[in-house]
Computed example of a mutant assay.
Amino acid sequence: MQFLPLIIQLVTGAVGGNLTGSLFKKLDLGLIGNSIAGILGGGLGGQLLGMLGIAAAPGGSLDIGTVLGSIASGGVGGGVLMVIVGLIKSVLLKGK
């Protein structure tokens, strides 16, 4: 089993989470919060898309398509989860 696609998804998830946090200032969780949400989202997004056959799942062959699929799924998954967590945080803070 190759772990390189998973590592790529986690790293690009952190990058995607921080990039999304910088684009959406109202949803920003800070550097650590964006990174954690991005890492989790990158791993989950990459795994979900891999199971659906849309992106490469860890354990397959390592070629340029796998690497690009891991980068895309990790970055998008990290950004999406960061937005979800940011929205939940803003709703909870609005209720106080």
Rank of each mutant, 00 (worst) to 15 (best):
G65W: 10
G13V: 00
V11H: 05
T66K: 09
K89D: 15
L49G: 11
P5E: 01
I36E: 06
G65N: 14
G45R: 02
G69V: 00
A55V: 07
T12P: 00
A56S: 13
P58D: 04
A72K: 08
I64M: 15
L44H: 08
G86F: 07
D28M: 06
I71G: 02
K94Y: 11
K96N: 11
I36T: 11
G16A: 03
S35G: 11
L81Y: 09
A57D: 01
Q47M: 12
G69I: 03
N34V: 01
L27K: 13
G38T: 01
G65S: 04
M51E: 13
L19M: 14
G74M: 05
V80Y: 08
M1A: 10
I32M: 12
L4W: 03
T12E: 04
Q2L: 07
L81S: 05
L52D: 02
T20E: 11
L44R: 12
G45E: 02
V15G: 00
L52C: 02
I8R: 01
G77K: 02
G16H: 07
P5W: 01
K96I: 10
Q47W: 15
I8V: 14
V85P: 10
G95I: 15
L40Q: 06
G75M: 06
A55K: 13
Q47I: 13
K25F: 04
I84D: 11
Q9L: 00
G60I: 05
N34I: 08
M1R: 04
L6W: 04
L87M: 14
G65C: 06
I64R: 12
G41Q: 09
N34D: 15
G60M: 01
L29G: 07
A57P: 03
G78V: 02
I88V: 15
Q9M: 14
L19T: 15
G77T: 01
T66C: 10
I36K: 08
N18Q: 15
L23W: 09
S22W: 14
F3G: 04
I7P: 00
F3H: 08
V11A: 15
N34A: 00
Q9H: 05
G74P: 02
L87D: 10
G16Y: 10
G86L: 02
G79W: 02
L23F: 13
I39T: 14
K94C: 03
M51I: 03
V91R: 14
V11N: 04
G33P: 06
L93H: 10
G86E: 10
L49T: 14
V91Y: 10
G74Q: 03
G38I: 01
G33K: 12
L27Y: 15
A56V: 01
G50K: 02
L68I: 03
